[in-house]
Design a protein around this nucleic acid. Structure first.
Length: 447
DNA sequence: CTAGGGTTAG
């Protein structure tokens, strides 16, 4: 018995060697406290241990023979959670009689990494081997059933749960409920729900989101109102449910109710939904308020929220977009270091006045995109409104940045390009330009 | 030394 050979035997890093030595001597120790603390460390940091270290440990365990099921299951679980199924399976195969933890660890790993079919397959093999599943097995295999909408197997799992008397374990019942909801069996979902004596917030939220998903908005709302102390997930289920069914006004009403009557703070899911409602309703006023809130509350503007925000400004009336709201939009994007969306909106503006141009240029400058700022300025001189003193101040700050960076050549080249593209007369040599720009100079030249 | 195993909802 035992592992014959560590899978990776090449060039050991020296610090890993040392770490492994320490672990090995600690595990060898007769002091049970020391051994326990080492194992605790492995469990706690299992996900962060390198493959090499794991293999080293396995090798050590095999050689010393001090390799109980607990140790093996710990290693097995760490491998499975890392997605190293080959290694996990190898450990699994070394266990003479895999117990429920051995099987469950494999199932957990497969389910976590999205290998749902493997998780289900593992569960079926576990049953046929006569090993009794636990609540941990059930929650995980049910998650895989839910993900693949494997209703047939889900039902079998259900009957096992009843036989083993685990139906009243809240996590198990929640997983079951979720499985039926995701698989589209709302009748059985309701049966499970009604039979639950103990309920979680998750229990209610699962049920609510199922109804909203099926378009049974009144049923979802009824449960929501029946629920004690709804959390942000509950609110979001209702709000997104309404927006998905095209009831944007209703969604915004619920949103306002939430702000006024609940301690729940809107999160990125809430904001994405209400911004999209604002876009559909062309409610730029509210959309701007929400945007301002996001900037104030320092909400992470990225991903879906970012798209919703862009869409809101784009749909909720590009034509109505005034300079003020464009500026506030830009502020938001400058803050997150991504002004490309702002440029898209700038480009699609029907009427661009001097402030819009300047705002855009300032946005580039604040992001350190100096050549973009100058390019846009050049374009402005060519085809836009006449620059004002704010525009010039921004462009001057670009020049001074370039000068202080010692980019004399770039400065010169830019000046020449500006000259070619406009009526600005730049007749100094590059050597004269460095550090010699003043506000007065630029103003007199450009005007 | 009977441990060891991340539940679910937007």
């Amino acid at each position: 018995m035992g592992i014959t050979k560590p899978p990776c035997t090449t060039s050991y890093a020296s610090h890993s060697d040392l770490y492994a030595d320490v672990l090995q001597s600690a595990i060898k120790s007769r002091d049970p406290f020391v051994r326990r603390s080492v194992h605790a460390r492995i469990i706690k940091h299992g996900l962060h241990l390198g493959v090499f270290l794991m293999n080293n440990l396995l090798n050590f365990y095999a050689k010393t023979g001090s390799f109980s099921d607990v140790h093996r299951n710990t290693i097995l679980s760490a491998y499975a959670k890392r997605g190293n199924f080959e290694a996990a399976q190898r450990v699994f195969d070394e266990i003479p009689e895999p117990d429920s933890v051995s099987w469950t660890s494999m199932i957990v790993g497969y389910n976590m990494l999205g290998h749902f079919d493997n998780a289900i397959h593992m569960f079926l093999r576990m049953i046929s081997c006569g090993v009794s599943p636990t609540q941990f097995t059930f929650t995980n295999v049910l998650a895989s059933c839910a993900a693949t909408e494997a209703l047939d197997i889900g039902r079998k799992v259900h009957s096992f749960i009843v036989k083993l008397g685990l139906s009243s374990v809240v996590p198990v019942a929640n997983s079951l409920l979720n499985m039926y909801a995701k698989s589209g069996d709302s009748v059985m979902a309701k049966v499970v729900f009604d039979r639950m004596r103990l309920k979680d917030k998750s229990t209610w939220n699962t049920m609510i989101s199922m109804h909203m998903h099926f378009g049974q908005l009144d049923l979802g709302l009824a449960l929501f109102q029946e629920m004690m102390d709804p959390d942000i997930v509950s609110w979001n289920s209702i709000i997104t449910g309404y927006t998905h069914q095209g009831h944007d006004v209703k969604a915004l009403e619920i949103f306002s109710l939430m702000l006024n009557s609940s301690s729940s703070k809107p999160d990125k899911y809430t904001l994405e939904s209400v911004l999209s409602a604002c876009a559909n309703l062309e409610n730029l006023k509210l959309g701007k308020q929400i945007h301002a809130y996001m900037v104030r509350a320092n909400i992470d503007i990225s991903g879906a929220v970012r798209n919703a925000l862009i869409l809101m400004y784009a749909k909720a009336g590009i034509s109505k977009l005034d300079v003020i709201s464009f500026t506030s939009l830009l502020d938001g994007f400058v803050k997150i270091g991504d002004i490309n969306p702002a440029r898209d909106i700038f480009d699609s503006l029907e009427f661009r006045d001097v402030v819009a141009w300047t705002t855009m240029i300032v946005g580039y400058v604040q992001n350190g995109l100096l050549s973009d700022a100058l390019d846009l300025f050049r374009k402005m001189v060519r085809e836009g409104p006449k620059p004002n003193s704010y525009t010039l101040a921004a462009v001057l700050s670009v020049f001074s940045s370039l000068a202080s960076l010692g980019h004399g050549k770039q400065l010169h080249a830019t000046a020449i390009r500006l000259q070619e593209a406009s009526s600005i007369s730049v007749d100094q040599e590059a050597s004269e330009m460095q550090g010699k720009y003043s506000n007065r100079y630029a103003l007199t030249r450009i005007n």
